[in-house]
Structure formats: structure tokens, C-alpha cells
């Protein structure tokens, strides 16, 4: 256990890192989308557009901060705050490396025995930000967006929870660091098919949970303007954007930690450079980058679901597939191993 002030400083540094990463993720996303759509993307501000996030930040801070006259003032201001606070808190439980590997410090903020549940709990409270914002705006498009988001998130949480179960059953622990050290893929080749199914189901549910294309119905701009954030401007709008990107990063890190060995490096590199697997942060960030790229790639390639398709997909396919993966894992553990 770290002393309290060390934890505090680490939490502060993590928040700053996440917000910095958010700023540059917006640039990377726009540049990549540009590439995929045969255009250039923002490249005028600074070399390669590297100063674009600064310009965006200055713009959103100095824009007029509108509070809608008929809005529920308290909830209207509270909602974006909830979003960003819970988005930032969720990341703290993700381990960035083995104990004591970061210059003698532990590369995580908190090491919880129930790390998996902590992240699920904190992200499930984060939903309140989205759908209170939509309600407090007192506008029908915003309300539609928030209703969509709550129905969607509850539906896909089932798929998410069920596909985590496979990993938990194999590793026998809820501690994220122990799951990484255990290495769920190394147990038996019999477990590979259910794990692979659970992995795919988990990635899909995670994309739905962070409201990314093709699941971005809460902010579908062709149908309901901008959904829950229609009436938000200036810094409050920016807070929602931050929360969305931080949630994406948490999802990417969570997927990597559960299914892809988290902070540990690949065995091939370990054989070439002994000890490389112990490097903190590096491998986790690389794995996160893969998933962030996947999220952007999907946004450029897939059209949005229709609402009834979204519900049918979540309840009739994803849920059953995740359940099958769980049962299969249980059967393999009970009868084969």
C-alpha cells in the first residue's frame, strides 16, 4: 500500500495524462478519418496540425457558456461534471505494470481486490451524466438522446458482464493485476474457443457502452441533432467530449487487461530482449492504441444501427452469444480440465 499522498499525486498525474491523451486523440481521430475518407484532415495549425488541440481548447473555453432558460439549472450543470468525474475515476484501477516497476513505485493508482467490479460500477454510474444532461436541457431531442442512451447501456451491460465472466471463471479472481499475471490464454487450448467468443462479444459491448459508431444512437446527428448534448456549449460540451474519449481509453485498457495480457509484453519480444515484458506502461499503451485505432476505423467504415436493430442485436444475438461463451467455459472447466 502506498501512503495517501503518493496515491493522490499518482491520481493527479493520471488525470492529466488522460486529458492530454484526449486532446491528441481528437487530432489523431480527425487525421485518421481524413485519411480513410481521402481527404487531409486538420493540418494547418502547427506542423501536421499538432497545435490543433490547443486551438480547439482555447475556442471551447472562450465560447459563450449558454445555460438554457428553461433548463433545470442544478442538474444541467451537474450532468457533465458527473460524466467526466466517473470517466476519470474508472481508469485508476487499471494496472500499468508489475509491482514496483515504475522507478520503484507501483504503476497503478489503486490495487483493488474487486478491480473488475470497480470499473463496471464506476462506468455504470457515469451513464447518469449523459441522461441527466438530456433531461435537464428540457428539449425533446436531448430527451430522446438520453432515453436512447439509458436503454442502450442497460441492454449492453448484460453482454459486457457475461463476457467478463469467462475470464473471471478461468482466472478465479476479480483483481485485474492477478488476472494479468495469471494469463488466461495459457491454461489450456480447450479454453481458447470460449475465450475468443467472449473477447469478440466484450469488444462489441464495450463499443456500445462508450456510444461509439455503429452504436452512437444517443448522439445520432441525422436524427436528433446531437442527442443529449444538443443544448450544451462551451466548456460543458467539452467536458462531455472529454468523458467520451476517456471512456474509450478506459474501455481499450480494460479489454487489453482482461483478454490480451494487459501490461505484459508479447513472448516473442521477451525472447529477443529479456526483461522487456516487465517494462511498465509501454505495452499497455501499445495495446490501447490498437483498440483506439479499431474504434476510429469502425467509425469510418460502418453505418449506424437503426434503433430496433440495436435492441434486437443486443438482446437476441450478443446476449445469447456471451451466455454461450460463459456456459462453454464452465463446461470446459468442469469436464475437461
Amino acid at each position: 500500500m502506498d501512503p495517501l499522498w503518493v496515491t493522490f499525486i499518482k491520481a493527479l498525474v493520471l488525470c492529466l495524462l488522460l486529458l492530454g491523451a484526449f486532446a491528441y486523440m481528437t487530432l489523431i481521430e480527425r487525421r485518421l478519418l481524413g485519411r480513410m475518407q481521402h481527404r487531409r484532415g486538420p493540418n494547418r495549425t502547427g506542423p501536421f496540425g499538432l497545435l490543433q488541440p490547443m486551438a480547439d481548447a482555447i475556442k471551447s473555453v472562450f465560447k459563450e457558456d449558454i445555460i438554457v432558460t428553461n433548463a433545470d439549472k442544478v442538474v444541467y450543470v451537474l450532468a457533465p461534471t458527473i460524466s467526466i468525474v466517473f470517466a476519470l475515476s474508472a481508469f485508476g484501477a487499471i494496472p500499468g505494470g508489475p509491482a514496483g516497476s515504475l522507478f520503484g513505485l507501483n504503476p497503478w493508482v489503486v490495487d483493488l481486490d474487486i478491480g473488475v467490479l470497480y470499473i463496471l460500477a464506476v462506468t455504470s454510474v457515469g451513464v447518469y451524466g449523459i441522461f441527466l444532461g438530456g433531461w435537464a436541457s428540457n428539449s425533446k431531442y436531448a430527451l430522446l438522446g438520453s432515453l436512447r442512451s439509458s436503454a442502450q447501456i442497460i441492454s449492453y451491460e448484460l453482454g459486457l458482464g457475461l463476457s467478463v465472466l469467462s475470464v473471471i471463471m478461468i482466472a478465479g479472481t476479480l483483481n485485474l493485476r492477478e488476472i494479468v499475471e495469471f494469463g488466461v490464454w495459457t491454461v489450456s487450448p480447450w479454453l481458447w474457443p470460449p475465450l475468443a467468443i467472449a473477447f469478440v462479444a466484450f469488444v462489441i459491448s464495450a463499443i456500445a457502452e462508450v456510444n461509439r459508431t455503429p452504436f452512437d444512437l444517443p448522439e445520432a446527428e441525422q436524427e436528433i441533432v446531437a442527442g443529449y448534448m444538443t443544448e450544451y456549449s462551451s466548456i460543458k460540451w467539452a467536458l462531455y467530449q472529454m468523458a467520451e474519449y476517456v471512456n474509450m481509453m478506459t474501455a481499450a485498457a480494460f479489454i487489453s487487461t482482461l483478454f490480451l495480457g494487459g501490461y505484459r509484453g508479447p513472448a516473442v519480444v521477451e525472447r529477443l530482449i529479456p526483461g522487456s515484458s516487465e517494462w511498465p506502461i509501454v505495452w499497455l499503451v501499445l495495446k490501447m492504441a490498437i483498440f483506439m485505432f479499431l474504434f476510429i476505423w469502425l467509425r469510418a467504415s460502418l453505418p449506424r444501427f437503426r434503433y430496433d436493430q440495436l435492441m434486437r442485436f443486443g438482446w437476441l444475438y450478443l446476449f445469447e452469444v456471451a451466455l454461450a461463451a460463459t456456459l462453454l467455459t464452465g463446461a470446459v472447466i468442469a469436464f475437461v480440465l
Binding site: 470497480y118 463496471l120 460500477a121 464506476v122 455504470s124 454510474v125 441522461f131 442497460i154
Partner: peptide, 16 residues
């Protein structure tokens, strides 16, 4: 964690 997931995260979301 269960308290938050079940009550705050699921039941109260449905209420609202």
C-alpha cells in the same frame, strides 16, 4: 461494488 452496480447502476437508471 455490488451496491453501486445493482442499485445505482441498474435499478435507479430504470426508475429515472
Amino acid at each position: 461494488a455490488i451496491q453501486v452496480i445493482v442499485y445505482a447502476g441498474a435499478i435507479m437508471v430504470l426508475f429515472l
